[in-house]
Simulated assay, not measured.
Amino acid sequence: MKSLHFKAFGAPQAVLEFGDSHKPTPQENEVLVKVAASPVSPADYIFIHGRYRVQPVLPQIAGLEGAGVVVQADKAGKVPVGSLVSFRHRGCWAEFVSVPVEKLYILPKAFPLEKACQFALNQITAWALLEQAKVQENSWLLLTAGNSTVSRVIIQLARKRGIHVIAATRGKKDETDH
């Protein structure tokens, strides 16, 4: 199968290789997913550099999150063939990936792939960042990169907690600004 993989830690443009890898064989409580979409996120860059909390095992197929269709079910039959799933698991920048059942989110068949492939990691990141910030109800939170997916999730979570948000974004500089 084709994949983007790396054999050493470093900058993605220096260490990533496109080529053949062994098609994974699912173990007990795993399914085989045909990957349909996988985003590129800051966590992926950190992972490829070898500085993420989940450590690569070299050689390593890149990618930490994705979505696809189950092509081989787990032995217990918890996740049937044909299920559209989202997952957070390393090695998904490939045609296929084996994913533990507990890391899967089964989605409706019509769920958009561009959202499905970002379903897990961004939400967890947004929740963790808001928790670490310890912002209290009726307080203000300033977000940079206000258009990012993580910021958009933080805005929704903050709203539910009664936190006011200012979301700063980058835009084109007005030609009249000096």
Rank of each mutant, 00 (worst) to 15 (best):
S86V: 08
Q72A: 13
P39G: 10
S38Q: 01
N29G: 09
S139W: 05
S41G: 13
V135C: 14
G50M: 02
G63A: 01
V85T: 12
H89F: 15
P42E: 14
K23P: 11
K103A: 02
K109H: 11
L143R: 06
D44R: 03
L84F: 13
C117K: 02
G146K: 14
L84N: 06
Q123H: 15
H22L: 11
N138T: 06
R90I: 14
T125F: 10
E114T: 12
F96K: 11
V33C: 07
S21E: 09
G50C: 04
F96E: 03
A94D: 01
V71G: 01
T25M: 10
W140Q: 10
Q132T: 05
A145R: 13
P59Q: 03
P24D: 12
Y105V: 11
A94G: 09
Y52F: 15
P24L: 13
T125A: 11
A110Y: 01
I106V: 13
N29H: 15
Y105T: 04
F47M: 04
Q27L: 14
A145Q: 09
A37V: 01
A36P: 01
T25A: 12
A62D: 05
P80S: 15
G146P: 00
E95H: 07
L58Y: 06
V101Q: 06
A43M: 13
I46D: 01
A43I: 08
Q118Y: 04
T25G: 06
Y52T: 02
V35M: 05
S38H: 06
K23C: 14
Q27I: 05
V135G: 04
Q136R: 05
V97K: 00
P42N: 06
N122E: 07
N29Q: 14
N122F: 00
R53N: 13
A133G: 09
K34D: 05
K115H: 11
L32P: 11
K23M: 12
E137Q: 15
S41W: 01
T25N: 14
L141H: 01
V101M: 07
I61E: 06
G68H: 07
L58V: 00
Q55G: 10
K78N: 08
F111W: 02
I124K: 09
K23L: 13
P108G: 11
Y105F: 14
K78R: 09
P39M: 09
Y105N: 13
A133W: 13
S83Y: 07
P80H: 07
W127C: 10
G77T: 06
S21D: 14
K75A: 15
F119H: 07
H89N: 14
T25Y: 00
E65Y: 03
G66F: 00
D74V: 12
P39H: 00
L113S: 14
C117G: 02
W93H: 11
Y45K: 12
W93C: 03
K23Y: 01
H89G: 03
Q27Y: 09
I48V: 09
N147D: 15
P39D: 04
L130F: 10
I48E: 00
A43L: 08
